[in-house]
Design a protein around this nucleic acid. Structure first.
Lengths: 344, 344
DNA sequence: TTGTAAGCGTTATCAA
DNA sequence: TTGATAACGCTTACAA
């Protein structure tokens, strides 16, 4: 095991002072070209790698941001992260991924750790459960400590000072319901992933609103309000679909549910869309290779990532514009899992 | 903007020395229960968050590891990361995700940055292109600096001292080819994602080996050796499949290719598996909802993550056992995209 | 049990 | 243009 090279090693080797080496390395003015060159040369020969702990301790700038994700297994984050990375990397910012797994405590641990790490900003999809428990306090504290936060995908309603990028979830579902209505569907159910989560609540609200406008009767029983346990959710779904009076169309609220719905339909040997229409949420490229290709509400996820990262970079650069709340539009990909009903 | 609370603030408030506060906070012995309690109390009232830069500068332990991934958009990493996270989080280790996007230069930048960050270990799926360019030197340097490295998914052949977890890629493809042979297929093509990549080369070698053993003729023309550009690859595939003498079965080497193959078959209106059999690689849960459900070679990805992380933790704890090279077995999920050919 | 002081690797201020 | 020195926030001998 060799010791790591430090500025001091370079200084000793060149018989100059550490401060000159530092100046040379950071491209500060006030170093002769000759010395600068010799420093760079020695640095590369000695395999010098700057110690970011020391650097960030001294300058309190770490070129690092935190990315808090609610569930890393959700394909959503693949696209989101790649959007984020595309804006961060060219600016030499790195990001630390923190997976909270929808656990408030974990989120808390991570926020504190990120602040302690000296990140210059935080991108977060915050957690909030049915009982309104959340980490608003911690996000406020980060802001107070001059660490800008940008929320993406989800909001914390009580915080009115944090930039955000979200989807127009209500409108997205409303468009979906309207499309179903156009296709003749009046018996519509919805499968919510989990109550309390911002996006899910918004999507649910959009559903209710659309039903109201279109005078579609909302059947309590056709609303699955928790699909975190797929086995339980399947059971309920099967019960609902097993009855004579059953929905002709089901709306999903994320990619997990898309699959769940499809599987249940298969198990029940219900033909899709013949006997049951399905509308998905979140598009995976496989969704149109599925049997049948699923009509899906698609979010511009990668754009969301780029915008969130861009907002954050702006704040780090000291933009003092008003709070930005970007709301993106969803797109309805009409494929074949929704049937056109002829008569009533 | 408020200033962050430091140990010194707590010390001042309590009128004790910073060292006592430090001892209390880190649960070191030699502090009275009374003082410890008061310290914790003050820390929480002052919203104290330890500064990890200072801590890691001093102790050179950061409780952080680096995770280098070759392409963050590959669903593989979802499962892999969640496996990693499951072993790291309980041990209070965090991980920094570095996406190299199959770019040697980016990988280099990240490795250096990780070392500079003071990570205690690195999990990496290293890049190596056709011309054998890679960052072996840097990984060696990390090891020399006492930063253990564990390779997963891919290896660098010239490095014989680094722990690894990989799939038995050759056997995986060999089993696939054997299965095709059992089903009566003798005209088999393969679509490689990109030459030079360790896993792809291994899978290709497995293919050749199986063909040799089973006396299957290898038709050069039926080997797509670069599918990084899907448009180009589609064209070639269409040419091959458009001819009278064409393969009856095609093997894929990752999830991207699975989709590509399926799409091409659709465009050509070739029925699968009637006119063309398809064997996928890497399983996505959607693969069995696709039309037709795809027979797929599945890797135990999440296990790979757990094992890689466990090996790394072991090294960090100072295990000085010999190099571990864990090789995992793939599983062949027989679904419906492979037909059984009756006669010749 | 508590305090003092040095030092981790940098950068920034000031003086030479 | 260069060098000495202090400081960032923390830990850790060692002394009290």
């Amino acid at each position: 095991m060799t010791k790591k090279t430090t500025i001091k090693d370079i200084a000793d080797k060149l018989e100059v002072s550490p401060s000159s080496v530092s100046r040379a390395l950071t491209n500060e003015p006030g170093v002769s070209d000759d010395l600068r060159e010799r420093v760079f040369d020695a640095a590369s020969r000695l395999n010098y790698i700057p110690n970011s702990s020391a650097k960030s301790l001294k300058t309190s700038r770490s070129k690092t941001v935190g990315l808090i994700v609610s569930d890393i297994r959700n394909p959503f984050f693949l696209d989101f992260m790649s959007g984020v990375e595309r804006v961060l990397f060219p600016r030499e910012y790195k990001f630390i991924v923190c997976n909270t797994g929808e656990d408030r405590k974990k989120e808390e641990i991570y926020i504190k750790w990120l602040i302690g790490q000296g990140v210059e900003g935080i991108l977060s999809s915050p957690y909030q459960d049915g009982s309104n428990e959340n980490n608003a306090l911690l996000y406020r504290r980060a802001m107070k400590n001059n660490i800008p936060v940008v929320f993406y995908d989800r909001l914390l309603k009580e915080i009115k000072v944090i930039d955000s990028v979200t989807l127009d979830n209500r409108q997205a579902i409303m468009n979906g319901v309207m499309y179903l209505r156009e296709c003749g569907h009046e018996r519509i159910g919805i499968c919510l992933h989990r109550r309390g989560i911002y996006t899910i609540e918004e999507r649910y609200a959009g559903f209710l609103k659309a039903c109201e406008i279109l005078r579609i009767e909302v059947i309590e029983d056709w609303i699955i309000d928790d699909a975190t346990d797929p086995v339980e959710a399947s059971k309920r779904l099967k019960m609902i679909l097993g009855r004579a009076h059953r929905p002709t169309a089901l709306i999903s609220t994320n990619q997990y549910i898309n699959e769940l719905l499809l599987r249940v339909a298969r198990e029940l040997k219900l033909s899709v869309p013949g006997e049951l229409s399905l509308m998905g949420f979140d598009d995976l490229s496989l969704n149109d290779l599925v049997d049948p290709p699923i009509t899906t509400i698609r979010q511009p996820v990668s754009d969301m990532g780029k915008i969130a990262a861009t907002l954050l970079m702006g704040r780090i650069d000291g933009d003092s514009v008003d709070r930005s709340t970007v709301v993106l539009k969803a797109e309805l990909l009409k494929r074949e899992s929704v049937s056109v009903l002829s008569g009533p």
